[in-house]
Design a protein around this nucleic acid. Sequence first.
DNA 1: CTGAAAGCGCTAACAC
DNA 2: GTGTTAGCGCTTTCAG
Lengths: 330, 330
Amino acid sequence: MKRITIYDVAKEADVSLATVSRVINGSEVVREDTRIKVQEAIEKLGYKPNAIAQGLALQKTTTIALIVPETSFFMTGQIINGLIDVAKIYKYNISLHTATEGITEMTEVIDNVIKSRADGVVIFNDKLSKVELATLTRYQIPIVVIGNKISDETIGSVYIDYEKLAYDLAGKYLDKGIDDIALVEDRRNPSFIRQLLRGMNRAFEERGKTFDQFIEIPKEYRSSYLYLQKYFVNHKHDLVVTYRDSQAMAVLNTASEHNIAVPKDMEVICILDSKFNSMARPQISAYKIPDYDLGAVAMRVMTKMLHKDEEVVDKEIELSYIYTARKSTK
Amino acid sequence: MKRITIYDVAKEADVSLATVSRVINGSEVVREDTRIKVQEAIEKLGYKPNAIAQGLALQKTTTIALIVPETSFFMTGQIINGLIDVAKIYKYNISLHTATEGITEMTEVIDNVIKSRADGVVIFNDKLSKVELATLTRYQIPIVVIGNKISDETIGSVYIDYEKLAYDLAGKYLDKGIDDIALVEDRRNPSFIRQLLRGMNRAFEERGKTFDQFIEIPKEYRSSYLYLQKYFVNHKHDLVVTYRDSQAMAVLNTASEHNIAVPKDMEVICILDSKFNSMARPQISAYKIPDYDLGAVAMRVMTKMLHKDEEVVDKEIELSYIYTARKSTK
DNA sequence: CTGAAAGCGCTAACAC
DNA sequence: GTGTTAGCGCTTTCAG
């Protein structure tokens, strides 16, 4: 089948290509009968407008580039869902790009995005430097960052205030007289962990104490799970805070193997909630992080930045979380 | 910053745009010094070729459309990773599309893909009808289907033979004299479950028996987890087979709550392995399904179909699985 | 080895 | 209300 173009439709309907273009784009000024004539021709020939040609002519592609860390689609999955749902509403397509340290450098990805002439880019990536954002800015591509608060004229951001979360959490326990609190590192999301760390530190310092129970996963361990399994053989804390479900479960497992009763002897809290937290025994207390919304809102901010007529009231949006107490805490 | 084009580079380097085009595309016939001159101009101006214009001129976009079910990125995540890794090698971009029954109909997605002029489309979706594939075929877009074996001249497929898996599994137990086997439905992936069902049936029939322990999740239950929680209050089987980890864990949990010892009184096997299977107590026996490879191989097949010079030896590729016995089976 | 010019499919003034 | 025409940025013959 020969690629059929707007010319073919024009000939078939016996009008000019301009008219065909008008009906495709829903212009009001076309007479009803010619509109029908054209639509019939389109139907008959199975014509589909070439988005590439439209892109060239209009100088916009109606696609948003999404850059995510390759590592895991753990939380990313829901973010993408949120993003796509909103993108659909505004008729945007999504092109997916991944950056993996040491494999696909960010600069390479950015390069690709620029060449693709995406109308905007949404970035969910921890380790993203100002330099890369600057490149995008230089090419006048609107940016929305998910996960980190960024203050810049041309950049939007949607994030969770993990520092506040940790600050409040630690404060609550400290005020109960509990200060043997440990935070487990998570290599996948270093920047979030750093935020948590800052919050903990602040809570301790304000009470004249020092927070120093940061459980670092040695490099030789491929996953934090493996290390935690070992760590709790001869360690115990009053409260252990982990970032993700699998880590909390690892803590639970070794605790039980070494007769540490949870929550009696040791409490466990997971930051990122998931269904596995309620499947574990005891069920794990955790924070519901609105991952879907993170994506949805980011995309919404993006569309606002793109449609000049819509005013962008707020380019920095903080989303909140909800704590769910379960059986791993007293 | 004005969008800088190939003309600007040509002027800067004092050559014609044809020459610039040649160096961009690594043509051999350019003299060394003019190549350098052009490259310097490109560098100086920060020129990035417009992929859209290239796409128009070349009649190809070097992007592959990926269609996945929105529902979950459970296994999809790894598939996407595999796909992207291979796509990068061959310089293809990925555009991400999701179809959700009742929300975004498949036909709408297909329509979008056609308009976007993707060079090919990879589909990972259970419920995909011949009609939709036919549309794609009509527009001469190469297709690779993940998960289902499809026999067609213009379609490639990469899949797991779940029927054989279930057949062998059931056969093994039947030959040990165990025939109280139950299979849990999974609404997310009906076609995979159907394959499992067929395998079970065949194993039973060949031994003059009938398989009828298919645990259907009633419509009113939002997740199979919730229903299983209830079902095992007054049910027990010698062997329970579930498709995904969360279901197996639900079985484990209720079993323990009702004093059914696993594996002594009841064995549990999960088809899709995940790290949670080894975190559960008892650890759950499962099959390692090569999800990453599913994506990687699919993309590889795609590139072969796209590069006419490469011969496509095998368009239907079956990937194998590995059984990992853990503590939930005897 | 390099330049001129046609064409990829579509949109958007500008005429009529 | 509809047609004509000039681009959008790039590739690719075809000359030279």
